[in-house]
Every structure is written in C-alpha cells, then in structure tokens.
Design a protein around this nucleic acid. Sequence first.
DNA 1: TAACCGTGGAT
DNA 2: TATCCAAGGTT
Length: 355
Amino acid sequence: MDVERNLMKIAADLLAHYDVHARRLPWRAPPGVNAADPYRVWLSEVMLQQTTVAAVGPYFAKFTERWPTVEALAAAEDADVMAAWAGLGYYARARNLLACARAVANDHGGVFPDTEGGLRSLPGVGAYTAAAVAAIAFGRRAVVVDANVERVVARLFAIDTPLPAARPAIRVAANGITPDARAGDFAQAMMDLGATICTPRNPACGICPLRSDCAALLTADPAAFPVKAAKKAKPHRLGHSWWIERPDGRVWLVRRPAKGLLGGMRALPSSDWSAAPDATPPLAADWTSLAEPVAHVFTHFSLALTVHVAHVAEDSMPPEEGEWWPLAQIGEAGLPTLFRRAADAAMKERDVHVH
DNA sequence: TAACCGTGGAT
DNA sequence: TATCCAAGGTT
C-alpha cells in the first residue's frame, strides 16, 4: 500500500474514533462548536504540564471563575495567584502564567498571538504548548508532541531508540501523520488515546482504533515502547522547619525566594535541605520537636522535614521578613503541600497538648 | 545538555 | 513500599 495513503489513514481512523469517544473536558469546546476560547485553552495547557487531568479539574474551575479573562488574570495580585496555585506544583508555572497574562494584556492588546511562533515567545510557553494552542484554539496545523504522542508514535512505528535520543525521529513521524485539517482535534485525539487506551502499562490494544496500523502490536511486547533511559536514584535530604505561634492564634509565615524550589510561595521558616542542614532556630524560644518528621518526595530528592514548635510572646518578632498569619485562615495562606502537611502536623500536636 | 522543578494516583 | 508517570519549560 502507498505509504502516504497509509499515514493519512491513521489520522482518519483516529479522528473517526475521536468523534465518538472524545472526553468531555471543561476546557474543550462542546461538540459542534469549533472555536475554543484561547484563554481557556492556554490556561488548561499550562496547568496540564506534567499534571493529570484529575488534578487540574478543580484548579481550572477555580481560576476561570475568579479570573474569567486574560485581562482579569493580568490584573490579579501576585500573592493571590500563587496562593490559588498552591498544591498544584511546579510553581514556576504560576509565575510564568502571570507574566504571560500581563504580556498578552499589555503588549498584545489582550489578544493571544494566533501563530506557533508568536505563542512560543510568551513566558512559560514552550514548543509543546505553542503547538497545542495554535492547533486547538486557532485551527493551525501544528505538530503537537507531548508524552502521550511520544508513546503512541513510538509504538505505531516501533521506534526502539531510547528516549530522549528518539525525540527527533518521533517528531518526524508525528509530522507525517498530522493532518492539514483538524490538527487540533487530531492532537487531542492522540492525547486521549494515550491517556485511555495506549497507556504506559497494559495498553488496551484490543480496542485501539489504530491497531491495524501499529508496528509495536506485531512485536512480543507493545508496551515496551518507548524505550527509556534508566533513571537516577533520588538522594535523601534532611531539613528543619519552625512553627512559631503567638497567644493570639497567629503563626509566623515567610515567603520563599522568587526562584528555585517552591519559589515565590508562602512557607514556614526553614533550614536548607541537605545531608546536614543548619538546625539553628530563627529565634530563641522553648522549642519542642515533633517526633515524626514530615516525609515528602520532590522531583529530584526526597525530604525528611523535622518540625519544631514554639509558643512565643505577643510582642515577639522573628528576625527575617514575614507575617503573622491567623491560624483560623491557615487554609487560605496558599502553602505548598510540604508546608501544609508540616502545619497540619504542628497543629495536631498542639491539639494533643491542649486536650 | 542535563539538571532543576511538585504532587498525587496507579501499580 | 517503591517505582513510575503525567497535555514540559527554563537555564
């Protein structure tokens, strides 16, 4: 069979399947509506970077209700956006989200660029997101390659070069099956397929709309694609955080530096995180340490965080910059998950002593 | 280029 | 319990 014709068949088969089985997602235009809102497409794509659909759902609802347009988001306070993002992870995304919204509002008249190149120049918009927004929101033909597409394409063509070295070949193959029309639907169909059928483990090849086109299905183990390089072991690190509570029911919170881990987020005052962290408290007080450290796993290391608790006088003021945050509103402080769990542990320990 | 950057669910 | 993994971008 003619090779080009066979490649066209892949897109046709996939789009026919998508027309029946597309997932209904809040950021997708309803069936029959062609134009998705670029703001919502962009917002969803940024939230979905390395993040599951299930995790994004409530955050997308919260953001679009509070900031319905890019102009509204551009006018938001930094602290409000960072707090609203708390718990979703990869906080550089939130910082870039605001920078991008302000760039669109201030430099582009509140209208998103409608080309891949224009989108690519925005903060936090890389090759994938630019292609996805251009295709989904603006109907451009763009080659959209995320981890789902990498997996589906590696299997379709049985590409056995290990990632990341296989990326150029995967991109070429993805370009070869991307249709001129409905490139946005095609991209979303590929991602739906990767998320629901062509899954990393135990793919449902028996119900796959592309099973007649798949080279990996002819091998002993289709799930072996894509081949990946071995991962490095995560080092274990230690750390200390200090819970400083006043008799009026407030706790001392600081803000972490703008860049780096948990950058720009509210936090408990903390040591460095290393093999031998500096355990010197930020102020002299009668400290008690929680027996059980908070265990937390980051992308490239795991952490055992010892939480120290002190009750200090009303006029006490720690040396570094920060704010006395009311305990009754601790949920609105926007603490990232590590510190939310440390706060939970400290408050639970306090309740044990009170009762 | 490869390291850095979160979190939670699935297995 | 340990490991893998997710609609990646930045430096």
